[in-house]
Nucleic acid binder design. Structure first.
Lengths: 250, 250
DNA sequence: TAAAGTCCTTGACCCAGATCAATCGCGGGA
DNA sequence: TCCCGCGATTGATCTGGGTCAAGGACTTTA
C-alpha cells in the first residue's frame, strides 16, 4: 500500500489558465476572490485505480476535479457496490460542513484535483456569495442527474440501461469537444465493464452481453473495447427509452 | 377535470405559528426577512390524489410543504413510473431559475403548501444569504438521500428494499414525534402499495408479498393494512442490509 | 342491504438477468 | 518469444421478481 499519490508538480497553478475555470465552484468568482481561493488551494494527483478517499475517513478538504475521471461509490457489508456519482472535470468533491467522507472516491483514470482546505473554504463561502451560489447551482444539477439515474436504476431494462449510459457519456463528450455537429459521435468509454455494472446496478456479464447486442444490432460500432461510434444518436436514445428529442434539461 | 384546488382558508398565515418555521427554506431568516417573504407568499392546498404540477408545465412559483405528503415522480412514455422524491413537511418544491416543472408532483395525502412567486423569490434569494444558505444545505441533504436511494434501487433485493423503506419512514416518524425512546416503533404507512412499488422499483404484487413475508417472519406487526409496529428496529435494519448501527448520516 | 369502487392479497407461471464457468486476447515483463 | 494477468466475452443454467389472473376486505354511494 505505497503512497502513490503526490503533490502534482506539473499541474496548472494559475487560475487564469485553468481548464475548468468557468465551470467549477469558482466559476463566478472575480479576480480578488480568486486570489483568496488561491491562497488556500493546492493540487493533488492520483493514478488510475487509486482510492482518493475511503467512506468514513476524516476529510479536511473539499476539491474540484481538474482533469480525469473519478467515481463515487457506496458499498454494503457483503461487498455489493453501487456507484452514486461520476465525477468529471469541474465536478465538486466533498461537502462543506461535513468532516468525514460519505462515499468512497476512486480515480478511474489518472486525475488531478484542485483542493481547498475545508475550514478556510467554509469561512470563505460564508463571505463570498459567488461561491455559495455556484455550489447551489451545481448541487441542484447533481440532484437532477441523480433523479434521472434513479429512473434508470428502478425502471429500465438492461439494454436500456446500457443505451442510457452510452447516451450520457456521448452527450457529455460532445458538449466538451464542441466539435462539428451532425457527424457520427465518437468517444472512448472511460469505464471498465465492471464500473459500468456498478453504475447501472447490473453484473459485468450482463453489461458485456448487452454491449455485444447493441453492436450486433448496429446501434453502436466498437473499435477495440473502449472506442465507441454512434452512427445515429436518435436511434440510441430510442433504445434508451428516452424521448427521441432528448427530454433532458440543459 | 374540475379544479379542486383552492386557496387555503384554514391554513396558518403567521410565520411565527408555522409548524415548519425552523426547518424549511426560511429556517434561518430573521424577522425582517420573514416580513419580506410574507409579502410574496400564499397558501395552496390540495386533496389526496390530486396532481399539484405536471412535469413540463410552466411553474411560476416555488414552495414549501407545510403539512401532508407529496411525491415527485418521473414517467416514461410507455407508462413506467419511478418516484424520485418523497416530499414531507418542510421540504422544498421547485427550482429557482427553472421555469418549468421537471417532475410530476402528486399529493399523497391532503396537503398544504406555502408558495412564493418565483421571480420575487429569486430576487430575494440573491439579496438574502440566509435563504440561499439554507436551500444549499437542504439540497445537499436531498442529494445524500437520493444517493442512498440509488443503492437501494440498484443493489438491494425486494425484501431489503421493503425493509429499507419501512426503516426510513419509521425513523423519520420517530424523529417527528420525538416521543419515548426505546419502546417499539409504531407508525402509519403514508403510501399505498402501488406508491411503495413506484418508490422501490418493484411491482405492487411484489411489495404486497414481501410485506406479508416480513409479517410472517415477525419483523413487523400489521394492524390493518397501514399501521405498522416494529418490535425490534435493529432486526429491521439487518433485514434492510444496513449497518445495524444505522450507518446513515444525521 | 346491496352494489360498486378501491386497495390489497395470493397463486401459477414465466423470463430477464444473475450466477457459475470456460475461454479469449491483448499489453507488459523477463 | 513466451508467459502471465487482467479485462472482456460467451455459454449453460438457475432464480427472484414480473406478469397474469382470481378473489378478499373495506368504504362509499344509494
Amino acid at each position: 500500500m505505497a503512497t502513490l499519490e503526490h503533490i502534482a508538480d506539473t499541474a496548472p497553478h494559475d487560475c487564469a489558465d485553468c481548464p475548468i475555470r468557468h465551470r467549477a465552484v469558482c466559476a463566478r468568482c472575480e479576480p480578488g476572490e480568486l486570489d483568496k481561493l488561491d491562497s488556500i488551494k493546492y493540487y493533488r494527483s492520483f493514478e488510475a485505480g487509486q482510492t482518493v478517499i475511503w467512506s468514513g475517513d476524516p476529510m479536511d478538504f473539499v476539491a474540484s476535479v481538474v482533469s480525469g475521471i473519478a467515481t463515487l461509490t457506496q458499498t454494503m457489508e457483503d461487498g455489493r457496490t453501487q456507484m452514486v456519482g461520476l465525477l468529471l472535470p469541474s465536478d465538486f468533491v466533498g461537502r462543506p460542513g461535513r468532516a468525514r467522507a460519505a462515499y468512497d472516491v476512486v480515480a478511474t483514470t489518472d486525475i488531478v484535483m484542485c483542493c481547498f482546505r475545508r475550514k478556510p473554504f467554509e469561512e470563505m463561502m460564508g463571505r463570498t456569495p459567488h461561491i455559495a451560489q455556484r455550489l447551489l447551482e451545481m448541487t441542484l444539477d447533481e440532484l437532477d442527474a441523480a433523479r434521472e439515474w434513479m429512473l434508470v436504476l428502478g425502471r429500465k431494462t438492461a439494454r436500456e440501461k446500457i443505451a442510457s449510459l452510452l447516451a450520457i457519456i456521448g452527450r457529455r463528450d460532445a458538449a466538451l469537444h464542441m466539435g462539428r455537429r451532425g457527424g457520427p459521435l465518437v468517444f472512448d468509454l472511460p469505464l471498465t465493464r465492471e464500473a459500468m455494472a456498478d453504475y447501472l446496478g447490473l453484473t459485468l456479464e450482463t453489461v458485456s452481453r448487452q454491449i455485444s447486442a447493441l453492436k450486433r444490432d448496429g446501434v453502436i460500432v466498437l473499435e477495440g473495447k473502449r472506442r465507441v461510434t454512434v452512427p445515429d444518436m436518435n436511434r440510441l436514445l430510442e433504445e434508451a427509452g428516452d424521448d427521441s428529442d432528448g427530454g433532458l434539461l440543459a
